[in-house]
Amino acid sequence: MSRTALLVLAGGRFPAGDHAHSGGVEAAVAARAVHDSATLYAFCRGRLHTAGLTAAALAAAAAAGHDPLVLDEAADARTPAPALRATARKLGRQLLRAARAAWPCEALERLARDLPGGAHQPVVLGVAAHAAGLTASDAAHVAAFGHVAGPATAAVRLLGLDPFDATAVLARLCDDVDAVAHQAADAAGRVAGEGAGVLPAASSPLLDITAEQHAAWPMRLFAS
């Protein structure tokens, strides 16, 4: 196993389409809920412990080798907002493309064949992490961190926020990200005995609602 593979997969330059998505922060900025680094921190922390935890557990379970088709259904069940389902599948397709180029293997090809419309991004992330020789815990960390890094980057562009401040927000969230990743990997460890229903189903209703509203905006900088 290569530690560096984790850096490749988690790096902000991994070309999987995330740069066009704000993780809900564009809607939050428009609502004036996020306007400085303190409110960005609060937003990221909320997203991490809700959608982030759910995604991290799905990614960990997929990286542990559980059936991606079952996990994809579990992801659907945990994603009530149609706009966020569409986004998750789109990002899943895009991540799959990058992962197939980076770590070509039968598991990724099979995923592309079985779900041509795209699997949920966390599921693809888990399969990709496994293909890269990474662990379930690694996959959970990448998913959890992605849930805060995306909004932080988007906030820099949307608010002209000082990029050092935004990076400091991420640094302050490290312990939270670790805790969420551990919780997620624990849950994934119980899937073999208890089924995918054991995976956390935390969600943030406000993120769901504003995602639907954002998808209908005629003018926006980010796709979601």
């Binding site: 070309p15 389409g17 995330d18 740069h19 066009a20 998505h21 704000s22 990058a98 562009r157 980010f222």
Partner: peptide, 15 residues
């Protein structure tokens, strides 16, 4: 393109 048109045609062309 998420505020970054050159990224979408050069660095991350997936979309």
């Amino acid at each position: 393109t998420g505020a970054c048109p050159h990224t979408a045609i050069r660095d991350d062309i997936s979309a």
